[in-house]
Design a protein around this nucleic acid. Structure first.
Lengths: 228, 228
DNA sequence: GCCCCCATGCGCATCCTCATCGTCGAAGAC
DNA sequence: GTCTTCGACGATGAGGATGCGCATGGGGGC
């Protein structure tokens, strides 16, 4: 799965590229619509992450020009938070999804994942972890078949855990994943949400283990580890 | 179901193509009547979305020439809002339906759907969702068999929900679907219509669930979920 | 008149910080 | 080796700020 990022802010472009590479995608970036056209002409990409606010030819124009030739490519558009009009036009022009800046890492990964799946012709992914079942697209979760409803923050953190099951995740890393880059969050806040998740998940046998000094780890304790 | 779009504005052509592809059709577009003739000669299409105002040979002329050979093809004609004359002539020349520009995404989908069904020899499609029953062509709705009447906007939004049942739809996405591209609408307006739809649908067991921070989702709560 | 849409105000879920309490681990004394 | 003590880290409950979503009233247009 090869992804082209079109973003004039090099810092952001690089951050996004790193993030996607970390998730197993191949990601390259260019800084303008013109460069994007040549890149797409020269090589083949499966997905485009396209900033609408570009210098020179703007993203919407690029989008409509691209559609004429690269028909199959999925487009995730990045817009400013208040540019409702752009978002509407973009969606009408055939962007597949959008994300408003600033966004959090897990949001981007979720959207890209959904588009990647769709381009492979798969439907929405149901992730399973023990008795827990997550449908990212429908944004729903079940525990033993019972609907479980989670506020945004808890949802994001749980999603991040599920991206890295049985791995130790530091609190700093969790903050980086679920916070937009204009926000900040104390590590204590993470502790709070982990605590809340525990009260919801632990009765079902899903544990978030504390690794003292290092972070947390999601684990599924099978039935044999029944408490006395 | 293969559709050819004949439209000289590439932005619009592309938007329409994307929209139709998103709905599961195969859609291609060309920018002039001449190109349309060669495309139709070379390959087979089931439906034509034809802009009347074309440079060079105009849409009406193309339509009359086409009818001589491709008799079976359905034609949805696009006209300017005030061009009553063209519409009349177009219908006389054998267009099957028309849409005035600018139009909203859901309108186009509804018309194309109707023509597609007709070409398959099916009569009007009754979509069912729990106790709700929708006849797009007749533009009527029933709830438990009781006629339900809905103003345009509510109709459009409900139709969009039915196109994506059990999926989270952001308010922006709803705006993009039901607004013509020359319009804009605050997300607040969506809230208002959702509220109205709820008062009408909820007594019958159809819920529009709020996903805080993300949007809405249509769901049918079966009888077993009876409140205490 | 009916429909559409916006502005305003309110209520509440969510989020995050703070403060307190509990727990774990290491080091030192015996 | 074992017990104790102490310090740091983590857990959790409470409270305040924030912002989202909902309801309502009214103005404008067809």
């Amino acid at each position: 799965m090869r992804i082209l990022i079109v973003e004039d802010d090099p810092l952001l472009a690089d951050g996004v590229a790193q993030l996607l590479r970390g998730a197993g995608y191949t990601a390259d970036y260019v800084g303008s619509a013109e460069q994007a056209e040549s890149a797409l002409a020269a090589e083949s990409f499966d997905l485009l992450v396209l900033d609408i606010g570009l210098p020179g030819m703007d993203g919407l124009e690029l989008l409509s020009r691209l559609r004429a030739r690269h028909k199959a490519i999925g487009v995730l558009m990045l817009t400013a938070r208040d540019a409702l009009n752009e978002r509407v036009r973009g969606l009408n022009l055939g962007a597949d999804d959008y994300l408003t800046k600033p966004f959090a890492a897990v949001e981007l990964l979720a959207r890209v994942g959904a588009l990647a799946r769709r381009s492979r012709g798969q439907s929405s992914l149901r992730r399973e972890f023990g008795p827990l079942s997550i449908d990212d697209e429908a944004h729903r979760a079940w525990l033993h078949g019972q609907p479980l409803d989670l506020p945004q923050r808890e949802w994001a953190i749980l999603g991040f855990f599920l991206d890295h099951p049985e791995k130790v995740l530091s609190k700093e890393r969790i903050v980086a994943a679920v916070c937009r880059w204009d926000q900040d969050m104390s590590v204590n806040a993470v502790e709070v949400y982990v605590s809340r998740l525990r009260t919801k998940l632990e009765p079902a046998g899903i544990r978030i283990r504390t690794i003292r000094g290092l972070g947390y780890m999601l684990e599924d304790l099978p039935h044999d580890a029944k408490p006395a």
